[in-house]
Design a protein around this nucleic acid. Structure first.
Length: 574
DNA sequence: GCCGTTTTCGGCCCGACTGTTTTCAGTCG
């Protein structure tokens, strides 16, 4: 069982306990443990073997015993007992908005409902409104919500889809007369790899008027709720969004609040309380009732004696403690990048010429670009034979001549790690190249042993500089390769090879947990776009988000280094 | 059920909005 599977068990326990109306703090303890397991960078079974389960935050005696039982037997008696009392199918009902544990318990006990289908049928028959405290409106709403979750295939969208939607809507918000400031908040601002709904904060002195105007915006398909400080809407593709409205002098606390995460906010509010302050989206309240207003986020954190904490770190993974010790990592920013080391051209499966890609890289402010087209075995991507690889070198030289000193063009490759563990080019060919990315695109379903043997031989090849998209996953479409990430990262650390954070929104590979572990083990990283067209260079922001969420110090990302230092590092590898 | 430079027991964030309530419960973030 891996970390997320164990976490899932505890999440389900929390849900079942809540339906059973157990004390809320018991429920929250299981939720916190699940969240903690999800953000754990090491495999939980490693900590288990070392006897260190209770070192996991939010895991105490009771939960560590349950993890022990799960990892030993693959089952959990406590869970089995729970599901023999509360039907597991009730958990599906939690996906329906406006349906929570209290209502589920009543549907089950008073109407005998145990499945989503039964809930829908009962709603159609008008049975839900017969319960006290429930009426026609609520029943109608629940039926509509069931419709809309059935229409949606997934409840989360990729980060670029969310980004595009949010950017367009943000512009509409900014253009409303009376809006002083507007910003994206929520999980999109924190850079999570997939996004459930969108959050915005608007600063204005005439919020009531603005709320009216927001509801009339062209992108708004449905208004879910609206009040004095908040409007909740549905945008295109069924994407839900919330907009919070506050006066400019409260904008900082509102933005901080709406950015979350929820558990970060809880920790921050607890810290505030310990200093005699109550924190909310309105600002701070002292015990005497007077307020501290925060027009920007700096003053929110500042009031608690903390430096500003970057949104990507706000996940309750120790960032508040680190901030108070002055130990936050120096995170990378867009402007830090000097080079792109993974990019394709129309020599393989890219859309554009070497010249077009080079010009686009220059426009992004980059000073070096590695052309790294696919190797011969990747036939579907028009991979380069040794002959074509050498001809390509001539064209790269010609383009370099044309562009002069404004950008340094380098020839690399994304060489295939073949099914038998050999690389697709001989070492003598790799030695002719400036930079070598080695990746797996073929035979991804091999056994873990075979996969690891392939990766380890690539990692130990002194000509290879970078392992591309190590897990091979495609978010929502293809599971990661069955590999032992801990072993791969340790091998990479030993050999000094770099690992990729591939910024493509379908990949984001390494993911944040693996990238964080890579840093803990002393690996070097790169953030690449794996660009197949000039506009793909824009995708780097998503990889930057992952690296920041992984607490990666900018210094560890080798394509932030100037070209001379970068080349010196490459040379030192062989 | 977890946790501790206020505590090993007694705490555990704060508010908006809806619908069904004559004062609030439930859900959500």
């Amino acid at each position: 069982m891996d970390n997320s599977e164990v976490a899932r068990v505890f999440d389900r326990i929390a849900d079942l306990l809540q339906i059973r109306d157990e004390p809320i703090y018991r429920v929250l303890a299981y939720r916190r443990a699940a969240e903690s397991l999800r953000s754990l960078t090491q495999p939980v079974d490693q900590l288990w073997q070392e006897g260190n389960l209770e070192e996991i935050p939010a895991v105490g005696k009771a939960i560590s015993e349950k993890i022990n039982e799960l990892l030993t037997t693959g089952r959990l008696q406590f869970y089995d007992r729970l599901t023999s009392e509360v039907p597991e199918t009730l958990l599906d009902l939690l996906k329906v908005p406006d349906v929570g544990p209290k209502r589920i318990a009543r549907f089950w006990k008073e109407l005998g409902i145990t499945t989503l289908e039964e809930l829908e049928q009962a709603g159609r028959r008008g049975q839900l409104q017969t319960l006290s405290g429930m009426g026609e409106q609520t029943e109608k709403r629940i039926l509509q919500n069931i419709e809309s979750i059935k229409a949606q295939q997934s409840d989360r969208v990729s980060i670029d889809t969310a980004w595009n939607l949010a950017s367009t809507f943000l512009k509409q918000l900014e253009e409303l007369p009376g809006v002083v400031d507007a910003q994206i908040a929520g999980s999109l601002r924190r850079g999570r790899e997939t996004i459930g709904d969108l959050d915005f904060v608007v600063a204005s002195t005439e919020t009531l008027h603005i709320i009216q105007k927001i509801m009339e915006l062209p992108d708004v398909q449905k208004v879910i709720s609206h009040g004095d400080t908040k409007v909740s809407i549905e945008l295109k593709q069924g994407m839900r969004a919330q907009v919070w409205l506050h006066s400019p002098e409260r904008f900082g606390s509102a933005l901080q609040y709406a950015t979350g995460s929820q558990s970060h906010n809880v920790k921050l509010r607890e810290l505030a309380l310990s200093q005699g302050l109550s924190l909310s989206e309105y600002g701070f309240k002292r015990e005497d009732g007077t307020e501290i207003l925060c027009p920007d986020e700096l003053s929110v954190y500042g009031a608690l004696g903390l430096p500003w904490i970057a949104p990507e770190l706000r996940e309750d993974r120790g960032e508040i403690q680190a901030a108070s010790r002055g130990a936050l990592p120096a995170l990378v920013e867009e402007g830090d990048f000097k080079g792109e080391v993974h990019a394709h051209t129309d020599w393989s499966d890219g859309s554009s010429s070497i010249l077009e890609m080079s010009e686009a890289a220059m426009e992004m402010g980059l000073t070096y670009l590695v052309i790294s087209d696919h190797s011969a075995s990747l036939g579907v991507a028009n991979g380069l034979s040794v002959e074509r690889l050498r001809s390509q070198r001539e064209e790269i030289r010609a383009v370099q001549k044309k562009l002069g000193k404004r950008i340094r063009l380098l020839q690399g490759t994304e060489v295939e790690i073949l099914a038998d563990g050999r690389l697709d080019y001989a070492d003598s060919i790799l030695a002719e190249l400036d930079f070598v990315v080695a990746s797996v695109h073929l035979s991804m379903r091999q056994s873990k042993e075979k996969i690891m043997a392939r990766y380890i031989s690539a990692v130990q090849n002194p000509h290879v500089d970078l392992i591309g998209h190590p897990s091979g996953r495609l978010i929502g479409r293809r599971d990661p390769i069955d590999l032992d990430m801990e072993v791969l990262l340790k091998e990479a650390s030993n050999s000094g090879i770099a690992l990729e954070i591939n910024a493509h929104p379908d990949r984001l590979d390494l993911n944040e947990n693996n990238a964080k572990r890579a840093i803990e083990l002393g690996c070097k990283l790169v953030v690449t776009t794996d660009a197949h067209s000039p506009d793909n260079f824009q995708l780097r922001r998503f990889g930057i988000g992952i690296s920041r969420r992984a607490w990666v110090p900018a210094e560890s990302i080798i394509n932030t280094w100037p070209v001379d230092r970068f080349l010196k590092w490459v040379k030192s590898r062989t």
